[in-house]
Simulated assay, not measured.
Amino acid sequence: MMEKLIETFYTALNNSDGKTMASCYHDDVVFEDPAFGILQGERAKSMWLMLCESQNGKGFKVEFTNIKTDKNRGSAHWEAYYNFSKTGKKVHNKIDATFIFKDGLIIKHTDVFDLHKWAKQAIGLKGMLFGGMSFFKKKLNTQTNSLLEKYMEKKKLSN
Rank of each mutant, 00 (worst) to 15 (best):
I106D: 00
A119P: 05
G88T: 05
C52T: 06
F113V: 08
C52S: 06
E32P: 04
L148V: 06
K94E: 14
H26F: 10
V29E: 00
M128R: 12
F64N: 08
A12C: 01
A22P: 00
T20H: 02
A35G: 15
L157R: 15
M1R: 14
I6L: 15
S134F: 00
L140T: 06
E53T: 10
R73S: 14
E153F: 10
L115M: 07
V30M: 13
E63I: 15
K126W: 02
K139F: 09
F84P: 05
H92A: 13
F9E: 10
M2I: 06
L13I: 13
L49W: 02
N83W: 09
G132E: 04
N15R: 03
N66Q: 07
V29A: 06
L51E: 11
H116E: 01
S23N: 08
N83I: 06
C24M: 07
G74Q: 01
A12Y: 05
M21T: 09
E53S: 09
S23M: 04
F36I: 10
A35Q: 07
K102I: 08
T65L: 13
M47W: 11
V62L: 11
I100E: 14
H77Q: 15
K150W: 04
K120C: 06
E32V: 02
D70I: 02
M2D: 02
K102E: 12
K156R: 12
S158A: 14
M2C: 03
L49H: 05
A119Q: 03
L125S: 07
L51Y: 14
L39D: 06
K61I: 12
S46K: 01
D70Q: 03
D96P: 03
M47E: 09
F113A: 01
N159P: 12
K155W: 12
T87K: 03
Y25V: 13
F36C: 14
I123C: 04
S75L: 10
S46Y: 00
L148W: 04
T110K: 02
H109Q: 08
V29T: 02
E3I: 10
G59H: 01
G131F: 07
H109F: 02
E32D: 09
D103Y: 01
D70W: 12
M50W: 04
H92K: 13
L105T: 06
I100V: 13
K137I: 03
S23K: 05
M133H: 09
N159K: 15
M47H: 11
